[in-house]
Every structure is written in structure tokens, then in C-alpha cells.
């Protein structure tokens, strides 16, 4: 099977969250360790370089220690950024042979225009396994089309067409929601993506009456 948008996201997400949790835990554990170890005890003496009232600020020297830490985090960040660019490359390149659907967002719903000119509102049907390329725009305000369970999201902007793609290997129904505040009906701007068995889809699609 070819990678889907879900695969691309999941692999990147797991790397980010593993590293993120790791870095977070290490840094915070170190901080807690320092606090517990160095908390003031009544008998403990003041550090020698404790700031004295009316003094100009001094600093603890430590450029080297800091440099090492920053180089370390820079290398993590550079790894993450290159992985991002690789993933982005795949996201930006829809697979060939995709079914092309035009999506027009409006206050508050979704209109879909199929390659044969058939239009539907609220529900988009696609065949399982075939890549789908969405040309998304809006007829009124700024919306964002998101099918979160497919890890797919694209801005729907009036006067501009943005492109997204997906490919789904399981039949089922997925929620399409708006992810940009677009007015009173923002919360109920919900559509459905219906992924059908290819044969079922074909018989439905060929039966459509297009005016």
C-alpha cells in the first residue's frame, strides 16, 4: 500500500512526541533535582557569590555549558525540521490518477462538485483506495476544511483555490468539520465523507443524472 496522509502524519507525530516528551522530562527532572538538592536549609551558608544589596549584577560564567546544551537542542531541532520537509514533500505531491473534486465552503456547509459535474451538499462520496484531490475554496468567508481522522486539513479562502489530497483504504463515514471560526453556524458546519466500496461507488456514480 502507498502511504496515506494518515501514515505521513502518524510517523512524524510519533517522532516529535517521543523527542518532545523525552526532552521535557529530562529538563524538568533536572530542574526538580536542582531545586530539591539546593533548597535552602537554615544552617546552610550563603553562596560565596551571593548578590549583595546595591551591587551591579554579576553573572555565572558558563558559555561552554550553554553552548553544548544549545548545540544539542539545535541538532534535535534540525533533525525534526528535515523530517518535516521530507513529509511536506510527500504531502505536496498528490499521487497520479486522482479523482478531482471541487469543494466550495459556505456559511455553513460544504458543496462538492464531482468530475462529471454532479453537485452535492454536505456529503462527499469517494471510492476506497483511489486517491482524491480536493480543490478547495469558499464562497463567503474564511473556512478550513478538516477531516481530522484522515489527518487532512486545508484552508478554504474566498477567491483562492487550495489543493489537498487523501487516499483512504477503509470504507466508512468520516466527519468533515470547519476549523476556522466562520460565524454563528461554525459549530454545526459538519459534513460527511463517505468512503465506498469501489464497485458500489461506480454503480452509484454512473447512475447520477447530471443536468
Amino acid at each position: 500500500m502507498v502511504a496515506t496522509t494518515v501514515d505521513i502524519f502518524t510517523s512524524l507525530w510519533s517522532i516529535f512526541s517521543t523527542l518532545g516528551v523525552l526532552v521535557g522530562v529530562v529538563v524538568m527532572a533536572y530542574m526538580v533535582y536542582l531545586i530539591v538538592r539546593n533548597r535552602a536549609k537554615p544552617e546552610g551558608p550563603e553562596p560565596e557569590d551571593a548578590p549583595k544589596p546595591g551591587e551591579l549584577p554579576r553573572e555565572q560564567k558558563g558559555a561552554k555549558k550553554l553552548l553544548i546544551s544549545v548545540i544539542l537542542s539545535a541538532s534535535i531541532v534540525l533533525t525534526l525540521i528535515s523530517l518535516t520537509f521530507i513529509a511536506l514533500d510527500n504531502l505536496d505531491r498528490p499521487p497520479a490518477g486522482a479523482m478531482e473534486v471541487k469543494v466550495i465552503a459556505f456559511q455553513w456547509g460544504w458543496k462538492f462538485i464531482y468530475p462529471n459535474g454532479y453537485e452535492s451538499i454536505g456529503e462527499l462520496r469517494i471510492p476506497r483506495g483511489t486517491p482524491v484531490k480536493l480543490y478547495v475554496t469558499s464562497q463567503d468567508v474564511f473556512h478550513n476544511m478538516g477531516i481530522i481522522s484522515l489527518r487532512l486539513k486545508v484552508d478554504a479562502i474566498p477567491g483562492k483555490t487550495n489543493i489537498a489530497w487523501t487516499r483512504v483504504y477503509e470504507t466508512g463515514v468520516y466527519d468533515i468539520r470547519c476549523f476556522e471560526l466562520c460565524g454563528d453556524g461554525h459549530g454545526v458546519m459538519i459534513g460527511k465523507l463517505v468512503v465506498m466500496d469501489p464497485e458500489e461507488f461506480n454503480s452509484w456514480y454512473s447512475s447520477l443524472q447530471v443536468s
Binding site: F9, L12, W13, F16, T84, A87, L91, I148, F179, E180
Partner: peptide, 17 residues
């Protein structure tokens, strides 16, 4: 740390909004 997640466009494609 979570800000770095959002700086990654590929993740931002999903996390936006």
C-alpha cells in the same frame, strides 16, 4: 516544546485550528 510541533508545517497541517 509544543510550539516546535506547531512550527513543523507537516504537523501544523493537522493541528491547525
Amino acid at each position: 516544546i509544543t510550539g516546535v510541533f506547531l512550527g513543523s508545517i507537516a504537523l501544523d497541517y493537522v493541528l491547525r485550528g
